[in-house]
Amino acid sequence: MECNPVVWFEIYVQDMDRARKFYEAVLQITLEKLNNPSDLPGLDMWAFPMAMEKSGAGGSLVRMEGVASGGNSTLVYFACEDCAVEASRVTTAGGSIQREKMSIGEYGFIVLAIDTEGNMLGLHSMK
């Protein structure tokens, strides 16, 4: 394989405004509205900031009629300088902490959190 195996991710939500506010507050970013294909009415997508020339995967929040959020087995980890910083914003933004910052040995540290839509997310840092 000549590239990273993950090229895109989607986090399904029920309330787009609430979910956007959560991720923008915790990660201190601004999501960008994506244009909907004309053959998919009722689709609402907001992308995380992407640097196309860099490694890693881009992705978006998605609200689609008939597709529920939460309860899935997909876990997306967001890169952080120190995951404790982003974790400190989770509760204020309407989410909850599932697992406080913990060491994963030589691979750094993680925090597991639950967003406003019931999805679990990971925060990862090397310090």
Rank of each mutant, 00 (worst) to 15 (best):
L123T: 12
C80G: 01
N36C: 12
G71Y: 09
M16K: 04
F109C: 06
K54C: 04
S38K: 04
E32P: 00
A68P: 05
S125Y: 03
M1G: 15
E2F: 07
L34A: 11
G122L: 07
L31S: 08
A47W: 00
Q14S: 07
E32I: 14
S55D: 06
E65N: 14
T30S: 14
M126A: 07
L75R: 01
E86C: 13
E32Y: 02
A79H: 07
L34Y: 06
Q14D: 15
I11K: 00
I114Q: 13
Q28M: 02
P49L: 09
D82M: 10
G42F: 07
E106P: 07
M16D: 15
A87M: 11
M45T: 14
R18S: 07
V7H: 12
G42D: 08
N119L: 04
V7G: 15
S88F: 01
M126I: 03
M50H: 04
V67G: 02
T91W: 00
D17R: 10
D17H: 04
G56C: 05
D44A: 08
K54N: 10
Y77A: 13
W46R: 05
L75E: 10
T116C: 07
M52E: 15
T91P: 00
F22C: 04
M52D: 13
G94I: 04
E100T: 14
I104M: 09
R20N: 12
L112T: 04
M50N: 13
D17K: 11
K21G: 06
K127C: 11
E2Y: 11
D39L: 09
E10W: 01
E53V: 06
E65M: 08
D82V: 05
M52T: 12
D39P: 00
K21D: 13
K101A: 10
C83Y: 02
H124K: 09
G105N: 12
L61A: 01
Q98T: 15
M102H: 14
I97A: 03
M1H: 13
K33R: 15
L121C: 10
M126H: 14
G42Q: 12
T30A: 11
G71F: 03
L43C: 08
A79W: 11
T30R: 14
V76L: 13
M16V: 13
Y77N: 06
K101T: 10
G59N: 00
E117Q: 15
R89P: 01
F109A: 11
S125L: 08
V62K: 02
G66C: 09
R63P: 01
A19I: 06
C83F: 04
V111K: 02
K54V: 01
L40S: 12
A113T: 12
G42T: 09
V7P: 03
R18W: 01
M120R: 05
L40F: 09
A93F: 05
N4F: 12
S55I: 11
I104Y: 09
A47G: 00
G66A: 06
A87Q: 14
S103V: 01
E65Y: 05
E106Q: 15
K33N: 08
W46I: 02
N36D: 14
E32L: 10
A87N: 07
L123H: 00
E32N: 11
V85G: 05
S96I: 09
